[in-house]
Design a protein around this nucleic acid. Sequence first.
DNA 1: GGTTGCTTTTAAGGTTGTTTTAAATTGAAT
DNA 2: ATTCAATTTAAAACAACCTTAAAAGCAACC
Lengths: 219, 219
Amino acid sequence: MRILYVEDEKYLAEAVIHLLKKEKIAVDWAADGEEGLDLALKPNYDAIVLDIMLPKLSGLEILKIMRERCIKTPVIMLSALNEVEDKINGLEMGADDYLAKPFKTAELIARLNALVRRPPLMDAKVLNFEDLKFDLTNRTLNGVELTDKEAGIFEMLIKTPGSAVTKEQILAHVWGNESEFEENYVEVYISYLRKKLKSLKSRAEIKTIRNLGYKLVYV
Amino acid sequence: MRILYVEDEKYLAEAVIHLLKKEKIAVDWAADGEEGLDLALKPNYDAIVLDIMLPKLSGLEILKIMRERCIKTPVIMLSALNEVEDKINGLEMGADDYLAKPFKTAELIARLNALVRRPPLMDAKVLNFEDLKFDLTNRTLNGVELTDKEAGIFEMLIKTPGSAVTKEQILAHVWGNESEFEENYVEVYISYLRKKLKSLKSRAEIKTIRNLGYKLVYV
DNA sequence: GGTTGCTTTTAAGGTTGTTTTAAATTGAAT
DNA sequence: ATTCAATTTAAAACAACCTTAAAAGCAACC
């Protein structure tokens, strides 16, 4: 099992990590909220243990952003004893469990096991770029539906953010080998995609590189 | 939401039940371990709240028997403060959460919501989605009977709420490998399912994603 | 064994959304 | 200014999907 532990009290963190390692639980440690969020957004962990009181970004804020981006990694919140409001906020916001500080590491381990023993949440294949979330299983971009061809093109763009894709590559990948009006297919669909991006009010856009192709950029 | 509450302290139970009702949580109450076990073995509940200290049969024993019989209804254990051993035993035994007594009902409600919001556990006998309750053992959807194929398809849809299932996946799962009119089988049965959903006046519906498949959504 | 009632398969026609086509418009580069 | 690439649009063509109903299959029952 691999977890992320976001905790600013260094000595506490070291002690807990040491005990978790004994139980064969691999731990990545983040010392503040920003670092924590960065790591939490990657789908690398079986669970995340989040302290609430943190420098830069609170645990509740991290959790909120995670759930907004549909990151479904199970989360255990930590906070000082008896702050019932925090507990409730955390649980309402999509935390999976709660543990009062100070806690016994044995209990944390038991709770981690209980969480991870669950069947894994169906992880939709999702590609992210800045404020965009492209869900491949549903073929939706931040919720709006894309058609087959739109999705085919957009997948290529979002997979190589910042670097260009040529029309020929797009044709080959999305259409196979065709004839005649070919290049215009791509142009038409790029136009459709731009329209959808605009309707999403995304700051990402598709940039044309004349005589070369297109790339996804963030303004 | 419908829960079972196993608790021998009558006045505490009445107070808690009263507050839960206000939150539209339906509660069945069992006053001792035997009665609790009987009810717990029925797949009627979204969650079970289990006191540990009980007459006749302890909460831990009930939990153990439930899990042995593969009843996967989520369980929240209750026990007097600081009995860390009990907590750990409970969680190891497959409890999904733990709450120390005395507790605030607000926290119990938050934890129930957190638990029930989860995707349904693997082989639960009843799968829920919004206003739909699909009972696998007698193959009824909110009471109306589904045929073999209907149920096979609907099970796939309700197990991945919000994310799409392809026709190929459906064919493979429900029919095995066949020939010729294959895809139309799925279309025909999707049509039947839609008719039944409509007759139930459910706000859930099956959405087509062209060239991809189907998903269950809530309007 | 044949009748009844149900589920499943087959088939065909209608509907809808996506893709293609084509032509007019805009914009960049020399 | 001229040219060629890129954009946009709308209509036509197409393919996917929906629906329905009849035929076939299957099991339970007398």
